[in-house]
Design a protein around this nucleic acid. Sequence first.
DNA 1: GGCGTAATCCAAAACGTTTTGGATTGTTTT
DNA 2: AAAACAATCCAAAACGTTTTGGATTACGCC
Lengths: 338, 338
Amino acid sequence: MKVTLKDIAQQSGYSITTVSRALAGYSDVNAQTRQHIIEIANALGYQPNLLARQLRSQRTQTIGLIIPARDNGFSNDFFTQLILGIGDAAALENYDLLVSAQKPGEEEMEAYRRIAGGNRVDGMILARTRYNDPRISYLKSRDHPFVVFGRGAPGEDSDFPYIDVDGQAAIQVVTQHIIERGHRHIGLILPPPDIAFTQYRLTGYQQALAQAGIPYRPEYVVNGDLLRAGGYQGARQLLEHQAELTAIVACNDLMALGAMKAVQERGHQVGRTFAIAGYDDIPAAEYAQPPLTTIHQPLHEIGQRLVQMLIKIIAGNPPEDTHLLLPSKLIVRESSGF
Amino acid sequence: MKVTLKDIAQQSGYSITTVSRALAGYSDVNAQTRQHIIEIANALGYQPNLLARQLRSQRTQTIGLIIPARDNGFSNDFFTQLILGIGDAAALENYDLLVSAQKPGEEEMEAYRRIAGGNRVDGMILARTRYNDPRISYLKSRDHPFVVFGRGAPGEDSDFPYIDVDGQAAIQVVTQHIIERGHRHIGLILPPPDIAFTQYRLTGYQQALAQAGIPYRPEYVVNGDLLRAGGYQGARQLLEHQAELTAIVACNDLMALGAMKAVQERGHQVGRTFAIAGYDDIPAAEYAQPPLTTIHQPLHEIGQRLVQMLIKIIAGNPPEDTHLLLPSKLIVRESSGF
DNA sequence: GGCGTAATCCAAAACGTTTTGGATTGTTTT
DNA sequence: AAAACAATCCAAAACGTTTTGGATTACGCC
């Protein structure tokens, strides 16, 4: 049977209060008494009921995280990596993780209401910000602690705590790298337009072009679904209408791999006659043929920082700077040439 | 501020009991009253406090899962895939997931005690069984519902609910496939010996050899750490002392990829003069050069079945068969020859 | 003897639900 | 007119903690 404080109290002859305080280490209980109580607790295999403790103390030591359910059309590589980083960091701080898989949409909002509104967690971590994100408005309106991986889109005011990678700079750097390899006609495969970071990536691309004195041509830019299929289709579309292209930058690795296939099918030699670059540095990027030039984000570190920032916010002393922009790293591999 | 049943009771003039029963849909409350109460609840933005509900009703609608923290030396591809499967299935059944990242060892056991013993979850899912697994003994002794992905090792009695993939058959099939390609000197890179499934894999390998009339030679078998480095080292060791080898079967893809590197460094052409196969079908396997022949496990389906079985056990009516052995699939790619 | 102080203990309230076991009406049946 | 019944409501207990605000005792000091 479950053993409770009451059982220990009866067994030891002390009150529930004293047992509780003995086990919690308060100084107003006699050393011998405490010893005695601890022994009984161990003998009975006492484990505190965390629900009761949480209800009473109004703290859960838990962080909530809602991830997209599988069939949403997005790659999950990204989220699973993030979960690991968050999970590791949370464990170090003695927090657990409450995870719920939901499709974006009404069910997802319902999960936010249930988990955040239902007091199951002390704070939440969101990712992949969308335009006018209803999750953010909800949490803000409820005054529920949260941090976000990803700023709002350029137009929006991002007055919520976030950590982001400077995707604009990253795409600029990778585009610049492609330009340095001698390319002038460079296609771009963007994420869907409702994702908040899409605009930053486009701007980075435009900046690199401008810096090199290459005119920006909108017909070189398409949107993809962040999956391999989207990259494949996007690349085919580009190649069909813009035969002069000799390079493509894709906004994530899966799309880059899809694009690589389309480019190869068209007879180009990726890495020799055609350059391709991605973004994310997923494990498959390293093993692609040719290996994919890409942008590496420190996901594990990001997870840790998200947790640390959230915990400070929960504790009521948010860090001075709740808007963190982390740098990423260009990983040059063979797909962008030699 | 948080709005509770009490607030709705005051606002509406009814008692807390009636408010609770109205919202829960009991038939002993007048239709108009219910309507009125529901309206007030909505107006106030009422969200039930789940901690209180769980404490009172002794059900949490939550499944616990403890994953290895990052620096444990194992690949996490496997676990993250599993989390997604479990998360999706759990969401469908209206369960949430409580995840904690812990290094195997005393801290991990502590987490089991805290989470299972502390009433935070209705049941737990374990994976990667070890010899004489202390987690299993603990949960059994506590009578806490759980299911395991992975049987006990051959010698042990696996009298706990589990779902496993028939790794013995899988390795037999892949070894057989290599033999059919004409190889007679086939190395094997096993997982560490303390993992429960290691023995099954070895047996499958031996069976395939025996079936083909090839003598088993223990010097063809080494253990690796389930990481790329382990595969690399294992393969180097094999090649150094057993120069006659023309093929290597590795017990997971990461080790296979490491082995591939070692083999290539030695001047062999993988897929032509040398065959390599892995196990897991991680995303990188498809993109490896050459693409890796491997074993695909239906991880998403496994996650779903684990959840369904666990939920039945929690409800008190375990399914007839709590020992499920699922088949896997051989994925033939170029690394095993043409 | 009265008073302050320190050490040790505990009853009761509180966290926010759900459930139990009626209580109170009004209506129908005998 | 009494009895049975249906409809509607609710007070109080319970889940297992933590915390508040003392109570009790023993002791030293004036």
